[in-house]
Design a binder for these strands. Structure first.
Lengths: 222, 222
DNA sequence: ATGATTTTAGACCAGGCGTCTATAAAATCA
DNA sequence: TGATTTTATAGACGCCTGGTCTAAAATCAT
């Protein structure tokens, strides 16, 4: 059997375990953190590597040691963001100590606070990259879509609970409601950033909650 | 009356092989038309002048004869887009031959057809620039906001009619509903472009219409 | 011709991504 | 210990693109 314990190799060992956001000294983690800040503010295409390198305090030579290209770097940042966001979602939406819709509101308040904390300069990375999707490598598109459907799945589960709880009309489909939520959410984040105000988020979320117990009806007959 | 046949002008004659601007002979119009196509696809920051010039069939040296800078050019394109879009809105929303909500649906169908016609490559210029607002000159922000509130005003008037018509619960505020519409709309356009599908628009608009006759209720108590 | 006006060609410079070479650090082998 | 191998840092350089500007071209007016 192979020696799984240590398996000695020659040479300087790599700084393994990038997944856990190692803190100081880890250039790769610093780069991703810097990328998160920059890309949520500026998007991908118009963001320059040099700026992110400077922000992270990492020289260019190191960058291409850890990432094959700017594109590969962007993907890594997106992965990290998707995980970070899904964790935040779960933290709120699985909080059994509150009724389901309050959990949704708790997530919204959390996100709102985050935007205010950064003076409405940072948006949603998925929204930013989504708008640039035309000019991005093809695999970005798939990843962005899968991220959104992942968030949708998590929200739908909570809305399903709310339906059983009696807070949503029984003929509404939680999955479709969740889909509509994220569609509107991205618009609300964009608008909040534009106006530098939490109001768009409030207007959207109020509208969303109001619609939950409406009788479903088709569009106006044509 | 002016001689429209030949109308000789002073100075070096233009090359007049503009490919885009329907109206031949006007390089400026060709540039704006080209800019509309490009900026609705790519946004402002990552779009290059060269591509737009080539698309318009206008030589590079001419650009700064017609516009003071790329920024000024972008503003001109935005003005044109805002007018174009407001006209389209009015054409539908003021059509007294149909009930108000059907007019809204007619506008939506029109916009959907436009997106499909361009294979979901082009988005809403206001949405594109809005997402880039952080990296854009300050006056862009104000213009984008005023454009959205202008569209909101027009839609609110139609929703007010719908309320009198009995299609909207009497305690809902048409202005706030219209505000919510444009917030979600931008999200829907973005998502439709990402998925290259009309579905996000349908999901959003169905959700919007469903909410119109709901009893208004606050957010979940916290 | 000379001058005025309109349009264009092309140079210019800044910045952006990626590469390349050099060096230091950390471990093993001899 | 010293040689060797692998990892990581360091930043200068090249090539290209992109926005801007200046000088010149092409025409009309006098």
């Amino acid at each position: 059997m192979t020696n799984t314990t240590i398996a000695r190799r020659r040479g300087r060992p790599p700084k393994t375990d990038y997944s856990v956001g190692a803190t100081q000294g880890d250039a790769r983690a610093a780069l991703i953190a810097s990328g998160l800040e920059t890309l949520t503010e500026q998007g991908f295409l118009s963001a320059g590597l040099d700026g992110m390198l400077k922000r992270a305090g990492v020289p260019k030579g190191s960058f291409y040691h850890y990432f094959a290209s700017k594109e590969a770097f962007g993907q890594a940042v997106l992965e990290r963001y998707a995980r970070y966001f899904a964790d935040k979602l779960d933290r709120h939406l699985s909080d059994d100590s509150r009724p389901p819709l309050e959990r949704v509101q708790a997530f919204i308040d959390d996100a709102k606070a985050g935007m205010a904390r950064h003076d409405y300069r940072r948006g949603c990375l998925v929204g930013n990259l989504g708008q640039e999707a035309a000019g991005l490598p093809a695999d970005y598109r798939e990843r962005l879509i899968s991220t959104l459907t992942d968030w949708q799945r998590r929200l739908a589960a909570c809305l399903e609970e709310a339906r059983h709880h009696g807070d949503i009309a029984s003929d509404r489909d939680p999955d479709r409601l969740a889909e509509a939520f994220w569609i509107g959410w991205e618009g609300a984040i964009m608008r909040a950033r534009l106006e530098r105000s939490p109001r768009p988020i409030d207007v959207f979320t109020d509208s969303f909650f109001s619609g939950l117990n409406a009788q479903h009806q088709g569009r106006p007959s044509s």
